[in-house]
Amino acid sequence: MYQRKSVKIVRRLRRLNGNGWAYHGLPGLQWEIENSSSYDRKLMSELTRELLEDFRIHEFYHACINCGNCTSRCPAFRFADFSPRVVVQKVMHAKSEPDLIVQMLDQYIWACFQCYSCWDVCPAHNNPGGLIAMMKELAVKHGLQSASKALEPYSRVLFKLMTTGTQITPDMHSSIAPFRDWGPHKAELVKHLREERAAVPVENLAKVMDRGWNVDAETIRELLIIEKEAGVIDAVKSVLKDVGEMVDETRAEYGVE
């Protein structure tokens, strides 16, 4: 519906502010809207169909009255061009205009913090956070380029979780780790990390550097079976090929067929 602006208005806005935020639609959406016009129509319909046929859609979306409560509580709205209200509105009109979903899937949704403040305050009990999580799943499953871009810096953590069942581990605290802005204090701690870790007074944590806690090999094997059977490894392969292949290698090491 946002695209149904009269050509005249669009031209005028372009003349006024050619490279600015005011043309074609809402602030922050110009890239997504431009990009959706070049999308494969078949893929576009497929993505929309999959979203609208998901068993959770009727639980997460009911009817949007455009009140904006969700956006008023949204942390991403404060510091990024993002609004959960826009997402719900686009889902509302997706059936007749499938490109609206692609506009959301392609980059826009990755701003969401998944805090679910939007769900808590929605008078219609929509769950924008839930819808966005579903959309992220779709973007990953179909290997959208924007998903690959968003997740590339996340690769290390993703691999760690999928192959150890734990996420942030002591060996991630190093001078080249992603947490450089944690300050000089962290750099100081890193110097004595091994000793400090050995002195943590819980047996399953002490000395463990490459995972959060001691995890049994059999536990990891079970996790890898779940990931394989539920299609998680395939989904990761389609968006981060290297990570998916490394998980596959680990899977083979653990004897998971």
């Binding site: 959770r56 998944q114 999580a133 959309m135 992220k136 799943e137 779709l138 973007a139 990953v140 998903a147 968003a150 997740l151 996340y154 953590v157 993703l158 979780l161 999928m162 069942g165 734990t166 996420q167 819980v202 047996e203 399953n204 959060g212 806690w213 001691n214 995890v215 049994d216 059999e218 536990t219 990891i220 079970e222 996790l223 779940i226 990931e227 539920a230 299609g231 998680v232 989904a235 990761v236 968006v239």
Partner: peptide, 23 residues
Amino acid sequence: DDTNQTSCTAWNYYGSGTSNPVA
């Protein structure tokens, strides 16, 4: 305090969409 425990993997799901309801 069990060693036969994995995380819920939901940090990953909410952050990256690399999971699904079945998993």
